[in-house]
Design a protein around this nucleic acid. Structure first.
Length: 239
DNA sequence: TATAATGTTTGAAC
DNA sequence: AGTTCAAACATTAT
């Protein structure tokens, strides 16, 4: 369940552990877990689809990939990949990627590339697009260095809303439409967040998994597009 | 029950 | 040597 907005919700859920000391660590992750023990979490942050747990001098990066999950103050049947116990509860992660990032997190990550971040920089995104005119828009939206946090659902919903075909080359899209695309990438991500928070995300999908266009009633076709071969949902009439 | 899906990394192949 | 590609990982709903 992990596109950027879902990780924002995860970050919010961990807030009660901020500033708290880890009093036990376990899990089948191969990283060195001892360095977390008896250390305080300085902050939980999100960057795109990643949760960053910052300690003094290093951070733990959690990536849920396609199937990862988490539980707070409860456990699943399957073994924990990483489990952190605090005085006021526990934080458990399953089937995820766990890595240690040494040093200051601000040196390792550009938070202006995260569509969910307060410091999101639309102009910087546009600059990056100028450098890759031959790339398809469907691939560009999934590029985490440009639109960190956007996944396949957001990609499809954004393209449908701004009426751009996923196979359009970036360099062939008019500048004003590119602006609209970049704006909607962030705007829709926040709508996604609000709907996800209220457990009503799916019913607001206009294109993703849909078979008929709500705008013009023509069929929506499914096509695997771009270098990632991810499914796209395209209205055959009004794009 | 077999399949496909909100994702990324790795290393082989070209 | 740089790019491209498929495989690997792993869970769950349909």
């Amino acid at each position: 369940m992990p596109e950027g907005p879902s990780i924002v919700l995860l970050k919010e859920a961990t807030a009660k552990f901020e500033g708290k000391k880890v009093i036990a660590v376990s899990g089948n992750s191969k990283i060195d877990k001892t360095q977390m023990l008896n250390n305080k979490v300085i902050a939980f942050r999100s960057w795109g689809k990643q949760l960053l747990i910052s300690f003094n001098g290093f951070s733990v990066r959690i990536h849920l990939l396609m199937f990862g999950s988490y539980r707070i103050d409860e456990r699943k049947e399957i073994p924990e990949r990483l489990s952190l116990t605090f005085k006021n509860g526990e934080l458990n992660f399953y089937t995820c990627s766990v890595k240690i990032i040494e040093g200051n997190i601000d040196d390792a990550y550009d938070f202006t590339a995260d569509v969910m971040n307060d410091n999101w920089n639309a102009k910087a995104a546009k600059k990056k697009l100028k450098l890759i005119p031959n790339t398809l828009v469907c691939d560009v939206l999934l590029d985490q260095q440009i639109f960190s946090g956007i996944g396949n659902i957001i990609k499809n919903e954004v393209l449908y809303r701004v009426k751009i075909h996923p196979n359009s080359e970036i360099g062939k899209i008019p500048s004003l439409k590119i602006n609209k695309l970049i704006k909607e990438a962030r705007n829709y991500s926040f709508e996604f967040l609000a709907w996800k928070r209220d457990f009503v995300l799916k019913k607001h999908w206009l294109a993703h998994t849909k078979k008929v266009c709500l705008r013009c009633n023509h069929p929506i076709i499914k096509e695997y597009t771009g270098v990632y071969h991810r499914r796209s949902f395209i209205c055959t009439n009004c794009t």
